[in-house]
Amino acid sequence: MSTISIVSTTNSNFVTPLATLYRSILVNNSNNNFDFYIFGDHLTAEDKLQLKRLELDCNNCQQINYLSVDESLFRQAVTDDRIIKAAYYRIYTADLLPQLDRILYLDCDLICTSDISQLWQTSLNGKVIAAVEDAGYVPRLAEMGIKAQQPFYFNSGMMLIDLKRWRDENITKKVMDFINQHPEKLKYHDQDALNAVLADNWCYLHPKYNMQSRLIRREQVHPLPPAEILAEEARQDPIFIHYSGRSKPWLEFGVRPHPLRNEYWKYAPKTLQLTTKQQIS
Rank of each mutant, 00 (worst) to 15 (best):
Q118W: 00
F240Q: 01
E71W: 08
R23K: 12
L67Y: 04
R90M: 15
W265V: 09
T20M: 02
Y105C: 07
I216D: 00
W120C: 03
V221E: 12
L51I: 02
D192V: 15
A199I: 05
K52W: 10
P139D: 05
T271V: 14
T275G: 11
K208W: 08
L224C: 09
P207N: 06
Y188C: 11
N13C: 09
N33L: 11
I25P: 00
L215C: 10
C108T: 15
L230W: 12
Q118S: 11
Y188N: 10
T44Y: 02
F14T: 12
R82K: 12
L160R: 01
S244H: 07
K185T: 14
C112F: 10
N201Y: 06
Q76N: 14
D80H: 07
W166H: 09
L274T: 08
Q62P: 00
L272C: 01
L106E: 01
T113G: 00
Q99N: 14
E133A: 00
N60F: 14
I91N: 08
N33P: 08
L230T: 05
Y188G: 10
D177Y: 13
M176Q: 12
S72W: 03
I64H: 00
T93M: 12
D107Y: 12
Y88F: 15
R214L: 15
L97A: 14
P269N: 04
N13W: 06
L56E: 01
T276V: 03
N11T: 13
M144G: 04
D47I: 09
H206C: 07
S5C: 13
S247N: 03
S281K: 15
A142L: 15
R140F: 03
F240H: 02
G145I: 15
D47E: 09
L251S: 05
T172R: 08
E263Q: 10
C58K: 02
D81C: 13
P226V: 10
